[in-house]
Each structure stands twice: as structure tokens, then as C-alpha cells.
Write a protein that binds this DNA or RNA. Structure first.
Length: 310
DNA sequence: AATCTTTGCAACCGCAAGACA
DNA sequence: ATGTCTTGCGGTTGCAAAGAT
């Protein structure tokens, strides 16, 4: 027996919302709050599908929506997050306070994709070309291959809050333990040094993943990068994992799709959630935003974070 | 000025996961 | 344990505005 459709489609308005409909929905949510979207149209007196109401609210009517042009910092962040997360628009949007997944998706599809593709084309490396010089495509959509973290299955055992947040007194605890998480993570905790990489946290992912993230560029990780990474480790940024497969030679560590590194949402959400909480009262809050960008910059790109955050 | 093409964005659709009875 | 409901997500579509011819 099939499930009921979310709404009877006959007699319902479709397409663009009128100002009057917007008003009704806003007033209804103000009074009754979000949720129970299925009942909203009937209770609010809207000739709309509940799903449509929810979408309209989330993507357009919510008071904390930040409209207007996407800044170059946001654009840069979207590109980097997309490189890291793929088409996980909701996750990407979660790192951009006030922006919706739909907006970011549209922005990517209409502007950034071309931009990035153009850039990739310029920087196409040998590994993406066949012997005859034609480019290899990794799927039927013709996307260039890239390392993407699929943030679902893996559970994060323990999360260490980013130091800037702690230093700023935004949070009290130095550790947030996820209930049910495995307390014996194979990777030892990241060093508690006062540095911006602290939020690489006690994470249930091996070093390969970390180097994936740090150097995810869709290309092979070079030996000198690993050396650099190890220097970071030596410097107290990351403590080396004990269970790193010893057989994996440096040259073999390809940052490619086969590493289905499934990072729990909490990886970055810890940061974003705090910033979001801070920013919802004042959607454009320079401190919170710059903090978030800076922390993410440190996470996403160790080398040139000074260049794009300013 | 008229028509065609492209672009940008809001909205829709189907699917999946989690919650709940 | 199972079925249904609710919500969220990502892909796609439709349409209006802008630009090109």
C-alpha cells in the first residue's frame, strides 16, 4: 500500500508566491512556530502544499535569511567547501550563516561551476590526461575528479572545540563528547596547543583522511606536502595516528574518490553551530563570520589562508 | 522594435532517513 | 518488527529578465 501524497494537488496554487501568501505564512509561523508543515496550509488558510510552505519559509521568509550578493569571501568558501564536500549544499550552507542551500546551489550552478571548471581547465595536470592528450572524465556528467568527503556514515567520537572559540569564551567546555561515541578513538587527541588547527579534534578517522582534507585538491599528494604535514605534526598540530598503514607509500596516497571518507557532520558543524548561534541575532556579524572563515581557512587550506581572508 | 537565446533564481519533484505509533 | 508520517536533501524544471542578433 503506497503512502498518501503529501497533499492533494487539485485546487492548490503553484508557482511564485504572492506577497499576500507570504504574509499569511509569516504570521502563521510567528504564532505557531515551525513544524507540522503538512497541516500548515489548512490551518493558515493557504492554498498551497505543505511542502511548498516549508520550502518558501526556509528559502525565503525566514527572518535570518541573508539576502544580497555573495561576497568574495563567501564565494571562496563555497568553492573550497564544495571541493571538500561535493554537492552537499545543506552542509555548505550551514557554514555560511544566513545563506540557504538552494541559494548556494543556484549560485554554484550558474556562476561558480563555470568559474571553477575554467580554473581547473587551466590547471589540468598530467594525471587527468590520457596519452593522446585528451582529458579523462570521471563520470558521465563530465565532472573532473575530485576528492569529496561524504559526510554521513562515520561517527565522530569526540570533538574538541576550536581554540579561538574557547579563548573568546564562546564555549566553556574544551571537549564535547558525542553521546554514544566510541571513547577509545584509534587516533589520539589532537594536541591542545593554542593553535587554529585544534578543531581537527579527536577524530575517528585515520591520517589518510586528514591529509585528504588538508590537501584535497583533486590531485595526488606530493611527497613534499607530506613532509610538510609531518612537520606540522611534529610542531604539535596533529599527533600522528598509530594505525596508519605502514605499507602505504607516500606516492600511493592518492586523494581520490576511493577514499570514501565519511565524516560526521559534526566535523565542521561544531564550529558553524557556535558561529550560527552567535550570528542569528545579527546575521551580519563581522567577528563571528571572520572567525568562522578564519578557522575554516585554517582547516581547508593551511598554506594560503592569509591570502583569502582579510 | 521584434525575436531569439541565455542567464538567474524560485519552486517543484522524488527519494531517503529518522521518528513515531 | 513493520508501516506510516514528517522532514530534509539534491536534482531538475519553469519562467521572467537581460542580453544578443
Amino acid at each position: 500500500m503506497g503512502r498518501k501524497p503529501c497533499c492533494a494537488k487539485e485546487g492548490l496554487n503553484r508557482g511564485a508566491w504572492s506577497a499576500k501568501e507570504d504574509n499569511i505564512l509569516v504570521n502563521f509561523v510567528k504564532v505557531h512556530g515551525e513544524g507540522k508543515w503538512r497541516d500548515v496550509p489548512q490551518r493558515a488558510g493557504l492554498k498551497r502544499c505543505g511542502k511548498s510552505c516549508r520550502l518558501r519559509w526556509l528559502n525565503y521568509l525566514r527572518p535570518d535569511i541573508r539576502r544580497g550578493n555573495i561576497s568574495s569571501e563567501e564565494e571562496e568558501l563555497i568553492i573550497r567547501l564544495h571541493k571538500l564536500l561535493g554537492n552537499r549544499w545543506s552542509l555548505i550552507a550551514g557554514r555560511l550563516p544566513g545563506r540557504t542551500d538552494n541559494e548556494i546551489k543556484n549560485y554554484w550552478n550558474t556562476k561558480l561551476r563555470k568559474k571553477v571548471q575554467g580554473h581547473d581547465h587551466d590547471n589540468i595536470n598530467d594525471s587527468s590526461k590520457q596519452e593522446d592528450g585528451t582529458e579523462l572524465k570521471d563520470n558521465k556528467l563530465g565532472k573532473t575528479s575530485q576528492s569529496v568527503i561524504r559526510p554521513k556514515a562515520m561517527r565522530c567520537a569526540k570533538v574538541v572545540m576550536p581554540w579561538p572559540l574557547i579563548d573568546n569564551g564562546m564555549v566553556n567546555n574544551h571537549e564535547h563528547t558525542i553521546p554514544g561515541g566510541d571513547s577509545e578513538s584509534p587516533c589520539r587527541s589532537a594536541q591542545r596547543d593554542n593553535n587554529s588547527y585544534g578543531f581537527l579534534m579527536d577524530f575517528d578517522v585515520n591520517d589518510l583522511l586528514i591529509s585528504d582534507v588538508l590537501y584535497s585538491d583533486g590531485h595526488q599528494v606530493h611527497k613534499d606536502q607530506i613532509v610538510e604535514c609531518e612537520n606540522l605534526v611534529d610542531g604539535g598540530v596533529l599527533e600522528p595516528c598509530k594505525n596508519m598503514p605502514s605499507s602505504s607509500s607516500v606516492e600511493d596516497i592518492a586523494v581520490s574518490g576511493h577514499v570514501e571518507a565519511k565524516v560526521d557532520d559534526s566535523l565542521l558543524d561544531v564550529v558553524a553551530a557556535e558561529n550560527w548561534r552567535e550570528s542569528t541575532d545579527h546575521p551580519v556579524q563581522p567577528n563571528a563570520d571572520s572567525l568562522d572563515l578564519k578557522t575554516l581557512a585554517a582547516f581547508l587550506n593551511l598554506e594560503d589562508d592569509h591570502e583569502w581572508i582579510n
